[in-house]
Design a protein around this nucleic acid. Structure first.
Length: 896
DNA sequence: TGTGACCCCTAA
DNA sequence: TGAGTTAGGGGTCACA
């Protein structure tokens, strides 16, 4: 058959010799995924052998012969246990110049770590020795997330046959896989294919559990087909084994590619794993498989023993959960990443995303009293369980999590699983290593770079001029760090050390402000600049296609190209971070510091030049400058609501004011565009990004606001408390209003408003829900479920845990039976700040404003006054004045 | 009352 | 033992 699939994940099987046969060791890769026609598939891929590379340490010139002693050493390598073959040499580029490199083939992938270690100790330099075997397939065959294949069908879901079906075993499989179709193929019958939206199937589930007995009371699942958009939900009741087995049967029947739920990583999955361990007693492996055998692997005892990608979901320490052939994607984690919500409970996120849909967030079941609720009204509990199984699908849909990860997988050429749960360096590795292989660049091991000594210097931040500034043009560099890497050919493979002897044209190099020298691209183009240029071109293509799709109102294409261009952008911006990190395989401490040094030089040069032209620069951060425009300061900066209304009615004065405003905006656009154009140079493209009719800062870096009038009208706020998730709602809304007054230059109203708001807090007339604080809390979970504060070790993350409010709150939550997850945001009220440390009480989502908790009004008033006071100070009122309600100034207070 | 250590979170 | 980076503001606590 022929087919196209989206790859979900892969793993390998080592085939041992069958009795009596003298066959060479073989390794088969199982690629799991879903085809464009909607069928799930397992490809059994043959023909790839595990290898790594070695080179001798020591001087060598390309014209040198291979010395006899080296040949001897190679022969001894060939006789080592588990070495199957040695091939080479091939001349490859390494940090120490061109080197002869031999490929060592081993019997099985799991032999590599020990051999690598042994060879290192025998003074061999090892390359490509830490690349997971499945990745090797993607690199060698240049595959991405979408693969076209041909092969022979060896099993189908509806076909007959025993678990150990001969056709599957003969094809190198382990038994019948839990997929629609199983296909045997080989490396040379796979090829990359253009990205398409895979009709993935998602299963979301939720458990209700007894707090007292830690048992599962009931469960629910909801299955969604992304191809048709169809969904259906299933409730589960009965005895605990019945529930677990029915849930497992649903997974196998509906065969999802992605499994989700809300906080399943830290709650539902650990619970299912624990309960499975207890319930299977006396039933052995068969019991485990029936209760929790969710993977696509054959339901065999041997499949339980795998460390990862097993038949049962597993996780190593605190990493993501994994299982054979499917991806576990926690909606809690996805929502947190995409939305950075102030609180992280399911009901809070649902309210945030679906404010008008009451049914999605009302809470009629008290989860903290689940045993009583279950006893008293099981039907309501089950109804909410079903809803909470469906909600994660709504949330994933709203934040486009699956489509975005799919786009990242396509751009980075990795399986969906790597895009969903992998690290940034894995994405970069996928692109860089395949190019290195093409260009005969040896691939160093992770951790082989010299450690970075201390931090590198980062971006330049210009002092802010405090106060109100009319008519400010914001210019910024387009993809600054990627442009610098391209423009100066910055790469691991182009950095020159010491003498420039082997450089053809010693004058024709890039020399950074920190005196690091990079080879010119005409002589040797770096891997990173090459990849970044390609990504930039891809982004332009998708942006063009996006515009075209928008014109044709092709919504499907709009979604696709938008996700793709966004994924390219994310990936491009990840390069700098990875290459500036201390541990990445292709890094050197001079790379990151050269990039930022060039960036600082660029921006500082421009600031100086613009100022020399007579245009003040009020602020600048890393890649942006805020420039005063030569526009009449009296030009109207904005129109009030009344004035807008008057414009609608054709009022002459209002129309005149509007026209004067628009004329000034146009002047600013012309000025900004021209300035950006004049200061763009080669790869360093400066763009006029925004026009502000007013800019305001109280004088702190990274904290400013502006009234944006171009390209669209909006209020811009950066850094201030309104942006922070560890602030409280009353402070946030107060500041937002204060900013409106500030931008309108209405100092008197601003101060009056601020005083009133501080007074309300002091008198505790503000509802408690408006003063809820939230902070994330770390800690190592020692035992699950977390039932007492002793089950979490806070000392690993905190020097003095109890001095941190969020830790004290987390401990109280644990005692209330609410569980704990490392990194979760905990919400709380300050009840008495005079105590040291301050007294805090957890804020539970089920609480309304009628609760008994009372907050410390004075504390909140002081915090509000402090935050707002920084703004009002510009208008001559400080925090103390705000607290007092009047200004404590006399004639004699000056200068004392 | 001032200061430094520690921490969270944001801008870029 | 896992892994994108640095710059920066500001809150809390402990202690002089």
């Amino acid at each position: 058959m022929n087919g196209r699939m989206g790859v979900v994940s892969g793993r390998y099987r080592s085939l041992s010799d069958r009795a009596g046969e003298d066959t060479a060791p073989r390794t088969v890769i199982e690629l799991f995924g879903r085809m464009d026609d909607g069928r799930s598939v397992c490809l059994l891929v043959h023909g790839l052998r595990p290898t790594f590379e070695i080179a001798p340490i020591g001087q060598w010139k390309v014209e040198d012969e291979i010395a006899p002693f080296l040949k001897d050493r190679l022969r001894s390598v060939a006789t080592m246990d588990h070495v199957a073959d040695i091939r080479g040499p091939e001349v490859k580029w390494t940090m120490l110049g061109q080197r002869p490199v031999w490929t060592v083939e081993v019997e099985q992938p799991f032999h590599v770590p020990a051999l690598r270690k042994a060879l290192k100790s025998q003074s061999w330099q090892v390359f490509s020795g830490d690349i997971p075997f499945v990745n090797r397939l993607f690199l060698d065959a240049d595959l991405g997330a979408h693969v076209a294949f041909s092969g022979e069908v060896v099993d189908e879901r509806n076909a007959d046959g025993p678990l150990l079906k001969p056709s599957v075993l003969d094809a190198g499989g382990g038994g019948r896989y839990a997929v629609d179709v199983t296909v045997v193929t080989s490396v040379d019958r796979l090829e990359p294919t253009p990205p398409f939206q895979v009709p993935y199937r998602i299963l979301s589930f939720d458990l209700e559990t007894s707090i007292e007995h830690e048992t599962v009371l009931c469960a629910a699942a909801c299955i969604e087909d992304l191809g048709s958009g169809k969904r259906h939900s299933i409730p589960y009741t009965g005895t605990e084994p019945e529930i677990l087995e029915a849930l497992t049967a649903t997974v196998l029947e509906h065969d999802p590619d992605i499994i989700t739920g809300y906080n399943i990583d830290n709650f539902d999955l650990p619970r299912l794993a624990d309960r499975t361990n207890i319930l299977q007693r006396g039933r052995g492996s068969e019991g485990s498989i029936a209760l929790f055998g969710w993977g696509r692997a054959p339901p065999l005892e041997t499949e339980l023993k795998r460390q990862r990608d097993a038949l049962l979901p597993k996780r190593q320490s605190n990493r993501a959960w994994n299982l054979a052939g499917r991806v576990i994607m926690d909606t809690w984690w996805q929502a947190r990443q995409a939305l950075n919500p102030r609180r992280e409970t399911l009901s809070f996120v649902a309210t945030l995303l679906f404010p008008d849909d009451e049914a999605k967030h009302k809470m009629d079941v008290d989860a903290s009293k689940m045993d009583e609720e279950w006893a008293a009204r099981p039907e309501e509990v089950l109804t909410y369980c079903v809803r909470d199984a469906e909600l994660p699908l709504d949330i994933l849909q709203a934040i486009q999590a699956v489509r975005r990860k799919e786009a990242v997988a396509a751009v980075a050429k990795v399986p969906f699983e790597t895009a969903a749960n992998g690290s940034t360096s894995q994405l970069i590795d996928s692109l860089v290593i395949r190019l290195a292989d093409q260009q005969q660049v040896a691939v160093p091991l992770t951790g082989s770079a010299e450690a970075k000594e201390g931090q590198i210097t980062g971006g330049y931040v210009h002092d802010v001029e405090k106060g109100l500034h009319p008519w400010i043009a914001v210019l910024d560099f387009k993809s600054m760090y990627p442009s610098i890497m391209i423009g100066h050919n910055i790469c691991y493979t182009t950095r020159l050390e010491g003498s420039l002897d082997d450089v053809e044209q010693p004058d024709n190099v890039h020399r950074s402000p920190t005196e690091v020298v990079f080879r010119h691209q005409d002589e040797r183009k770096g891997l990173v600049p090459f990849l970044l240029e390609d990504l930039m071109a891809q982004r332009d293509e998708h942006k063009a296609a996006l515009r075209a799709a928008k014109n044709e109102s092709d919504e499907l294409a709009v979604g696709f190209h938008d996700a793709m261009q966004y994924a390219v952008k994310i990936l491009m911006n990840s390069f700098y971070g990875v290459f500036a990190s201390g541990f990445y395989r292709f890094t050197h401490r001079d790379l990151g510091s050269s990039i930022t040094a060039w960036a600082r030089q660029n921006i500082k040069t421009i600031i100086a030049a613009v100022e020399a032209e007579g245009h003040g620069v009020v602020y600048s951060d890393t890649d942006s400058i805020f420039v005063r425009c030569p526009i009449d300061a009296n030009a109207p900066r904005m129109l009030s609501d009344d004035e807008r209304e008057a414009v609608e009615k054709g009022d002459t004065a209002a129309l005149e004011k509007r026209d004067a405003h628009l004329a000034a905006v146009e002047e600013m656009v012309a000025f900004g565009t021209k300035l950006a154009q004049r200061y763009s140079k080669d790869a360093a493209v400066l763009e006029f990004e925004k026009g502000l009719s007013v800019f305001f800062s109280h004088g702190a870096k990274k904290r400013y606001i502006g009234n944006v009038v171009w390209p669209a009208e909006e209020m811009l706020i950066r850094g201030y408390e309104t942006q922070r998730t560890d602030s409280f709602p009353y402070l946030t809304s107060t500041m937002r209003q204060v900013f409106r007054f500030a931008l309108a230059d209405q100092g008197d109203q601003l101060v009056e408003y601020a005083r009133e708001r501080v007074r309300a807090l002091k008198q505790c007339t503000v509802p408690p829900s408006e003063v809820v604080l939230a902070k994330s809390c770390k800690g190592r979970v020692l035992r699950t479920p977390v039932k007492s504060a002793d089950d979490v070790d806070f000392h690993k993350d905190y020097t003095n845990p109890n001095s941190m409010a969020q830790v004290r709150v987390a401990k109280q939550r644990i005692e209330l039976g609410l569980g704990f997850t490392s990194g979760m945001k905990v919400s709380f009220l300050v009840t008495d700040a005079k105590k040291r440390p301050m007294e805090v009480a957890p804020w539970l989502d089920t609480e309304g404003d009628g609760g008994e908790v009372t907050y410390d009004g004075l504390f909140y008033a002081e915090r509000l006054a402090a935050a707002v006071g920084r703004i009002t100070e510009i208008f001559d009122w400080n925090a103390k004045d705000l607290m007092a309600g009047n200004r404590q100034r006399t004639l004699f207070s000056f200068g004392t």
